[in-house]
Simulated scan of single mutants.
Amino acid sequence: MGNAVQKPQQSSQPDQELEEQESSSESSTFTCEICIEPVTLPNKKFKNSNRCVHPFCTDCMVKYIQVKLEDNVSDIKCPALSCDQSLDPLSCRAKVAHQVFDKWCDVLCESTVLGLDRVYCPNRECSALVVNECGGGGSLRKCVCPNCKKLFCFKCKVAWHAGYRCEESGEMRDQNDIAFGVLSERKQWMRCPTCRHCVELVKGCAIVRCRCGIEFCYKCGKKVDHHWCNCRRSSTICMWVFHLCIVILVVWPFFLLFTAITRKNQHH
């Protein structure tokens, strides 16, 4: 009777282990949604760094990544229709070839650079890629190449044209023009907005008159029709002083004359 009780217990353990093995084998088997083939090896299932879990085999995903990189796609999405997760390049590094991973890195860098203002150094011995990481759009002009340390204009992509505007950079014909431009920039001379001759302000008001007859502001370089400019506070003060002088020199004598005539009429 004791043997009859122990016999079922010994035979139940192998049956339980067999059921666990069958259940585990069923859970490790999946069908790839790309090639529609059953996959029995659990290590063949692609894992997107636990961002998303979809039944794709590793071989199909490697081919999928290669096709996307051939189209210069940097942000590779999961191929599942209802998934918007991006593939993690670092988690895919061990699954793809070294050449594929290097190309993926190049495409990522190129897509990042394309989103920023960039220019190549105009120095022929350098030609380094310079990226405007500070923003500012077309306002960036004078800058230094981080590689060769030479000045150049970021806007017109030529060597720095000291003392000349970007639209005038093509007028520099020889070394004398370049030297004069450097001197003009160092002395902070201002060019007339009409005839483009250089004018030096030694002292006095910021509103100067060029030899061509045009009056302009020495601070901002803009042509003015009156003896003031609102670009600087000092120019604004000069405007008020000018108005005050007009009042004193013109209005005040008329006021005194009117007062004298009024008193004379009162005496009569």
Rank of each mutant, 00 (worst) to 15 (best):
G213Y: 02
I237T: 15
N3A: 15
L41H: 14
G221L: 04
C210V: 03
K95L: 12
C109P: 00
N230T: 10
R211W: 07
E19T: 05
V158K: 14
I261N: 00
V100K: 04
I178W: 10
S127L: 10
K157R: 13
C205A: 10
F216K: 03
M239G: 15
C229N: 04
R141P: 03
G221D: 01
N43H: 11
N123L: 02
C57L: 03
I36L: 15
K142A: 05
E171Y: 14
H268M: 04
Y218G: 07
D102W: 06
L151E: 12
H268T: 01
T29R: 15
V144Y: 08
R51V: 08
M1P: 13
C60M: 03
M172E: 04
D225M: 10
V131N: 03
P253S: 07
S184G: 08
E22D: 11
P89C: 11
K150S: 09
V67S: 13
K203A: 07
A4C: 09
L18P: 05
R263N: 03
N147G: 01
C238R: 15
G137Y: 02
E168K: 12
C52H: 13
V131K: 05
N123M: 02
V251G: 08
C143E: 09
T262Q: 06
K157M: 08
E167N: 13
S27H: 13
V241H: 14
P253H: 03
N230I: 11
V199F: 06
S28T: 02
L183K: 11
M1E: 15
Q85V: 12
Q175H: 08
W228H: 14
V53K: 14
K44R: 09
V107K: 01
R165L: 13
A206H: 11
K203N: 07
T58Q: 09
V144F: 05
S235D: 15
C121N: 00
E70V: 05
N132D: 11
H197L: 07
R141T: 06
D106P: 02
V144M: 05
C195M: 05
F154K: 02
E185V: 00
L257D: 14
S74N: 02
H243C: 14
C229L: 01
E167W: 09
A162G: 10
K149T: 03
N50H: 15
P42I: 04
M190R: 05
S234C: 12
M190C: 03
L114R: 12
D15R: 11
S91I: 08
A206F: 14
V62C: 12
F180I: 11
K219E: 12
Q13W: 07
M190E: 01
K63F: 01
L114T: 13
H227A: 10
Y120D: 07
R173H: 07
V182F: 06
C92K: 10
V182L: 09
P38E: 13
E17F: 07
C212N: 06
C134V: 13
N265D: 01
R233T: 08
D88Q: 07
E110M: 10
C153N: 03
C60Q: 02
V96P: 00
R232T: 09
H54C: 02
E168R: 07
C192P: 01
V250W: 15
E22H: 12
G138R: 13
D106E: 13
P193D: 03
F30A: 08
S25L: 10
F255Y: 09
V224D: 00
K223I: 02
P122Q: 00
S11Q: 15
D75N: 11
